[in-house]
Design a protein around this nucleic acid. Structure first.
Length: 177
DNA sequence: GCCAGAACTCTGG
DNA sequence: CCAGAGTTCTGGC
């Protein structure tokens, strides 16, 4: 099978640096980063069979568009996404993309929406954790049934910031307790 | 290779 | 409070 070419570039956002990768079909990864080398290793792990190459284009309109989406997540995002995963994950990601900005769902509610037993909640959490497209697949809108934020692959602080930006959290609210 | 346990959970007993 | 349910991955033997 042919090796897919994937080009990656870095961009800066108010939530820190993001690594944006794309194939010929669309954006295939949007990864927040606290450590660039580690994030690049993460990208390589996610696409072990691809040719990864750097892509430098500061004024690229795709990059600009992704950054805009992160800064204003209530705007519709229309660029093509190359979202690929196991059938189960693809179903979960699709359901998550249907959550409108400013709303949240619990893991159990997603299970019901997918006609799965509520015991699948944990499997859904696993699918969220594997999401390659930060913000474009808004897994930050998935919270625990009691309303608390549980985990976020890219740090709870970012999850909180994204939700606050969408007006879901009161600016004053504390995380726990 | 196979099996056990963990991972962004939830509900019933 | 504890256990068990659905999926994927990782690490040990």
């Amino acid at each position: 099978m042919a090796r897919t070419n994937i080009s990656a570039s870095w961009a800066d956002t108010s939530l820190g640096p993001v690594l944006i990768a794309r194939s010929h079909r669309g954006i295939c990864a949007i990864l927040f980063s606290d450590d660039r080398a580690e994030t690049e290793a993460d990208l390589a792990r996610r696409f072990p069979r691809a040719n990864l190459r750097p892509h430098r284009a500061a004024a690229d309109r795709v990059i600009t568009s992704v950054v805009n989406m992160i800064e204003a997540p209530d705007q519709p995002y229309l660029l093509p996404l190359d979202l690929y995963g196991t059938p189960f994950r693809a179903r979960v990601w699709h359901a998550i993309r249907a959550i409108p900005p400013g709303e949240t769902r619990s893991y159990g509610a997603l299970a019901r929406a997918l006609a799965l037993p509520t015991t699948a909640a944990r499997a859904i959490a696993g699918a969220c954790a594997a999401n390659p497209l930060a913000v474009a697949v808004p897994c930050h809108r998935v919270v625990r049934a009691d309303g608390q934020l549980s985990g976020y692959r890219w740090g709870l602080e970012r999850k909180r910031a994204l939700l606050r930006r969408e007006g879901v959290l009161r600016s004053k609210s504390h995380e726990g307790r």
